[in-house]
């Protein structure tokens, strides 16, 4: 059994084999792998006894469930109005320069994906970015770069 199959099996043990278990299992795979591979979706379909198309159809509905490979750390910069007004474009520009990628891309070492997101619920402290589940409110281009540099130091 591959690692992903192992993970899916273990998550199905925890959350159950019912349809209502699908979201938590998908979310656990995302947490560990950052995206849903075909292998993962096939394994989930088998555990829950539903079709792979159904698993894909559900996953593809949700913004945070990518079916294409993503970096180990997913950076999401809020692009909604108040963060826009407070300078999210400059933050994204600084991160693009630092990581040498364009918005929407992954770094070639697989460490980062740089994405935008809709309102993250910190509008009084924009611009704000999310790295995986971690929130960074009131970032400047410089402080955002420093945050990423900290992540770069970790292995």
């Amino acid at each position: 059994m591959t690692n992903v199959e192992e993970l899916v099996k273990q998550q199905a043990e925890i959350h159950g084999h019912k349809r209502e278990s699908l979201m938590p299992i998908l979310q656990a795979v995302i947490r560990s792998e950052r995206f849903l591979s075909e292998e993962a979706m096939v394994a989930i379909a088998k555990e829950l006894d539903i079709s792979t198309a159904d698993v894909y159809g559900t996953a593809s509905f949700y913004t945070f469930m990518d079916t294409k490979p993503k970096g180990k750390n997913i950076i999401r910069v809020c692009k909604t109005i108040t963060c826009h007004m407070k300078g999210k474009d400059a933050v994204i520009g600084a991160l693009e320069d630092l990581l040498k990628i364009k918005l929407g891309d992954n770094t070639s070492d697989g460490k980062f994906s740089l994405l935008q997101a809709n309102c993250l619920g910190w509008c009084h402290k924009g611009p704000v970015m999310l790295i995986n589940d971690e929130v960074y409110p009131e970032v400047t281009p410089q402080s955002a770069v420093e945050v990423i540099q900290e992540y770069l130091k970790q292995k």
Partner: peptide, 11 residues
């Protein structure tokens, strides 16, 4: 679910 832009009170 607090997704409405400009809302952050539930958090």
């Amino acid at each position: 679910d607090e997704g409405e832009p400009g809302t952050f009170k539930d958090r």
